[in-house]
C-alpha cells in the first residue's frame, strides 16, 4: 500500500485536530499532516505553494463551519486556484451538519470527492485513505 504524502486538515476545533492527528499517526497511511484553523489560512498556504508540488496536499479534510473563511468560501477560492496547483487533490468535506441542503450543495461541487458526517472514526479514515493510495 502506497503512503499518502501530505494531508491537510482544515477545521477550527482543536480537540478534533488532536484526534485526527493522533489517529493518522497511529495508522501510518499519511507521511505528513498540516493543520489549518480556517479556510483563509489554508488558501494562503496553497497560494504561496504554487510551483512547489511537494507542498500541495494529496488529501484535504475540510470542515464547513469555521470562522473567518468557512468551507464553502474555501472551495470557491480553491476552484480559482486549482488550475495553477498542478496536482490532483482529493477534498473530503467532514462536517457535523446533516442538513440535506449542505450535502446536496457539496455533491454539486465536482472538486468535492465525498461528504462525511462527523464523527470520522479510525475505520472510516483507513478505508477512505486506502482507497486513494
Amino acid at each position: 500500500m502506497k503512503e499518502i504524502d501530505t494531508l491537510f486538515l482544515v477545521d477550527d476545533d482543536d480537540t478534533y485536530q488532536f484526534i485526527v492527528q493522533r489517529t493518522l499517526s497511529s495508522i501510518n497511511l499519511v507521511k505528513s499532516i498540516r493543520i489549518f484553523s480556517n479556510g483563509r489560512e489554508a488558501i494562503n498556504f496553497l497560494e504561496s505553494s504554487i510551483g512547489d508540488p511537494n507542498l500541495i496536499p494529496d488529501v484535504i479534510l475540510l470542515d464547513l463551519t469555521m470562522p473567518i473563511m468557512d468551507g464553502w468560501q474555501f472551495l470557491e477560492n480553491y476552484i480559482l486556484l486549482k488550475p495553477r496547483l498542478g496536482k490532483r487533490v482529493h477534498i473530503y468535506v467532514v462536517s457535523s451538519s446533516v442538513d440535506p441542503s449542505d450535502v446536496e450543495r457539496a455533491k454539486n461541487i465536482s472538486e468535492v470527492s465525498d461528504y462525511i458526517v462527523k464523527p470520522i472514526t479510525k475505520q472510516k479514515l483507513i478505508s477512505l485513505l486506502s482507497s486513494l493510495s
Partner: peptide, 22 residues
Amino acid sequence: FCFIVSHNLRAPLSNLLLLTSM
C-alpha cells in the same frame, strides 16, 4: 433548531465518542 441540535451538539459529541474509544 434542528441545525443546532445536529451541528452544535454533534461536534462536541463526536469528539467525546472518539476520545472515549481512544
